[in-house]
Design a protein around this nucleic acid. Structure first.
Length: 137
DNA sequence: GCCAACGTTGGC
DNA sequence: GCCAACGTTGGC
């Protein structure tokens, strides 16, 4: 089981869209490194959904419901997509400012490579990011 | 709206 | 295969 972070423009496709759709095809990833990560994603993995643009915060958790496959809408074997479904909304969203303020997250890819749209999240980072949840649960 | 950072492209 | 130039992205 692995953890990921998917970035999205809320104007384009937001967490609310995903929650409404229940499940969606996560497509439109064209960056090579992001695609490389995408191809290693497995069924059952979890992904944080991060809103870029005006919000810049992690808003929810999605579950990967299948394995990556070539985008059927495009004729390019390099461009893969994956099916995800909404798992749950975060009770406490985690903003980019909070991530940056946390010294333990200095190596987090979101901080180091702001432009990557699909990135791995380590177990430790996952724990830290969701620590605000645990205290309330 | 600006600028820095990164990825990609194309010429050599 | 390298590197400069360019375009795009995203944070501020």
């Amino acid at each position: 089981m692995a953890y990921w972070l998917f970035k999205t423009e809320p104007d384009c496709y937001s967490w609310d869209n995903l929650e409404k759709d229940k499940q969606t095809v996560w497509d439109g990833v064209s960056n090579n490194l992001a695609l490389k990560h995408l191809r290693t994603i497995k069924k059952g993995d979890l992904a944080l959904i991060y809103h870029t643009g005006d919000e810049k915060q992690i808003v929810g958790i999605a579950e990967i419901v299948g394995y990556p496959y070539v985008d059927p809408k495009l004729n390019d074997p390099k461009l893969v997509v994956v099916d995800v479904k909404a798992k749950r909304k975060l009770h406490t969203t985690v903003s980019l400012a909070e991530v940056k303020a946390n010294k333990k997250l200095a190596d987090f890819v979101l901080v180091k490579n702001a432009r990557l749209s699909v990135m791995p999240v380590s177990d430790e980072e996952w724990e830290i990011l969701l620590s605000g949840e645990k205290t309330k649960a």
